[in-house]
């Protein structure tokens, strides 16, 4: 009986030791790619951050680790920590990370000048290449940055360049919408109408374009046209441009529709 207990104790101790060895191996010695994927999949947890720290200890010049480690900090509003990591990634591989940092400065910080500096630097590092930071055309993002600065002329120029870069059929529909807004802001109502209509040629669900047209027609006293576009804006409202992380600069709300509706009734 004593021998049996001893054997059981040894089996248990061996299993526990084996478990510990496996855990330590996974944390410290398994393939860096597997550990990187594990840490990325556990995004936001302290375990993920610890894994990134271990990976950095062994490979301090790996820009991907700093980039991926920065993501949850920035998503959760800890920009000092997030940008410290992102800046390091940019230092290690500017071509790879400048675009994303510019995108973050634009969409998460609304630091338009900082975003433009990053986009321009990226562009200068990649002659002959149309960059697509975080999947979006660089001129579209420049246009949005200038729009944020209130420089509608430069914004419109870059949105037009973005359409040229991508080709009219492949361009972001919001390029047409933004040009419409910029032209409206500059008082070029005919041009604004044309671009809103181009957006609607791409998709009849463009709520932003319907609202833009409704506003112009309403101000011009063309009540029926305004009403028709307002009705479509209401009908397709669920297709509006939105993002779970941050509010777009040209994001529209029900209150915008209500405002134009009131305007249309009073004119």
């Amino acid at each position: 009986m004593k021998k049996l207990f001893k054997i059981l104790k040894l089996i248990l101790a061996t299993l526990l030791t084996g478990y510990s060895i496996v855990v330590i191996y996974m944390l410290l010695f398994s393939s860096p790619e597997k550990r990187y994927s594990f840490a990325a999949n556990m995004q936001g947890s302290e375990l993920s951050q610890k894994m990134f720290e271990i990976l950095k200890f062994k490979d301090p010049e790996n820009d991907r680790i700093y980039f991926e480690q920065s993501v949850p900090f920035n998503k959760r509003g800890y920009y000092e920590e997030g940008f410290m990591l992102l800046d390091k990634a940019v230092t290690l591989d500017p071509k790879m990370h400048l675009g994303y940092r510019g995108y973050m400065k634009l969409r998460f910080l609304r630091n338009f000048k900082g975003a433009l500096a990053d986009f321009d630097r990226l562009d200068s590092l990649t002659p002959g290449v149309i960059d697509t930071p975080w999947g979006e055309d660089i001129d579209f993002l420049r246009g949005e940055s200038y729009y944020g600065l209130g420089d509608y002329q430069k914004a419109s120029k870059h949105f037009k360049k973005s359409i040229e870069n991508q080709g009219e059929d492949w361009a972001d529909i919001q390029s047409f919408v933004y040009i419409g807004i910029c032209e409206y802001e500059m008082g070029n109502l005919e041009a604004a109408i044309n671009y809103y209509k181009k957006a609607l040629e791409q998709s009849k669900y463009s709520v932003e374009a319907h609202l833009g047209l409704a506003k112009i027609y309403s101000e011009d006293g063309k009540k029926e046209l305004a009403k028709s576009h307002l009705e479509k804006a209401e009908k397709y409202f669920n297709y509006k441009r939105n993002d779970p992380y941050s509010e777009y600069l040209n994001e529209i709300y029900k209150s915008d529709l209500a405002q134009v509706k009131t305007l249309n009734k009073s004119t």
């Binding site: 104790k9 040894l10 248990l12 101790a13 061996t14 526990l16 030791t17 478990y19 510990s20 855990v23 330590i24 556990m42 936001g44 947890s45 302290e46 375990l47 951050q49 610890k50 949850p72 900090f73 959760r76 509003g77 800890y78």
Partner: peptide, 25 residues
């Protein structure tokens, strides 16, 4: 041997659980 292996496994599991449960922010 059993005691040490048990303690190491417990400490590791506790640490892993704590790290996985706690999140940035």
């Amino acid at each position: 041997f059993l005691l040490i292996s048990f303690l190491v496994a417990i400490i590791l599991t506790g640490w892993l659980n704590y790290q996985a449960k706690n999140r940035i922010g």
